[in-house]
Design a protein around this nucleic acid. Sequence first.
DNA 1: TCATTAACTGAGG
DNA 2: CCTCAGTTAATGA
Length: 243
Amino acid sequence: MPSDAIRAALLRRLQTYAAISEEDTRDILALPVTVKKYPAEAAVISDGQRSTECCLVVDGFCVRSKTIADGKRQILSIHIPGEIPDLMSLFLHVMDHDLSTLTPCTLGFISHDALTRLHHRRPNVAEIFWRDTLIDAAMFREWIVNVGQRPGPARLAHVMAELRARLKVIGRVDGNSFEMPLTQEQIGEALGITAVHVNRVAKQLREDGIVELQRGRASVLDEAKFRELSDFDSRYLHQSPTS
DNA sequence: TCATTAACTGAGG
DNA sequence: CCTCAGTTAATGA
C-alpha cells in the first residue's frame, strides 16, 4: 500500500471530526510514516514501555487491554483503520496498558517529534487531535456503563452497535453486516463475561432473530429490536464536526 | 483451536 | 421460583 494512501486514511478519519484547511491538510499528508506488518494477536506496545511514536491503524483491527495479576485480561477498546489508539502516548510517555493486534494488521508509525512539530506549526491540527482524545475518553465512559450496568445481551449488542457506527464512517458496513473479528473468548474479555456465557448470549440473540455472529462477522437481523436492546445512542461518538 | 451445548451451581431479586 | 452467569465437561467444526 502506498504511503500516500496511509496518510489519506488518517486524513479521512480526522475530517469526520472537523473541517481541515488546505494548509493543515498538506502538513498532515507530509507526516513521515513508517509502515510495518503485524500478525494477529501480536503485541504492538506493552504496559510499562516507553513510547516514542504513535501508531496509526492502516488495516486490520487492534485492541487496548489491561491484564490483572491472575492473568485475566480486560479489553478496553477496539480499534479500526484510520485510528491512532495510542495518541495519548504523545504526552503520557510510559504506557499504562497494552496495545495489540486482533487480526493481521498494517500499522503506520509516526514519531512523537513529528507530531509535536505539527502541533506547534498547526494549532488547528492540535485541536483536532485534542478533540479525538476527548472522544476516546467519551468512548471509555460508555464502555464503563456497558460493562458495569447492562445485562449480557445488551452488553454484546451495544459493543456491536458502536463498532458498526464507527465502521460505517469508513465505509466498511456492507448492508446489514460488518466485521467483528473477535473470538467468543475475546468478546468475553471485552464484556467482562465468560466465553461460555458469550456463547449463550449469542445463541439467545440469534434465536430471537436480532443479530447473528459468525466467522468474525456480525449481521443485524432486526434493526428495531437491535436498537432497543443495544440502548445505543451515537451522540457520545461526536461523529459530526458540529456535535 | 474455536464454537456449541448440557448440566449443575449459587447469587440475588 | 426465576433469571443471570460461572464452572465443568463433552462434543463438533
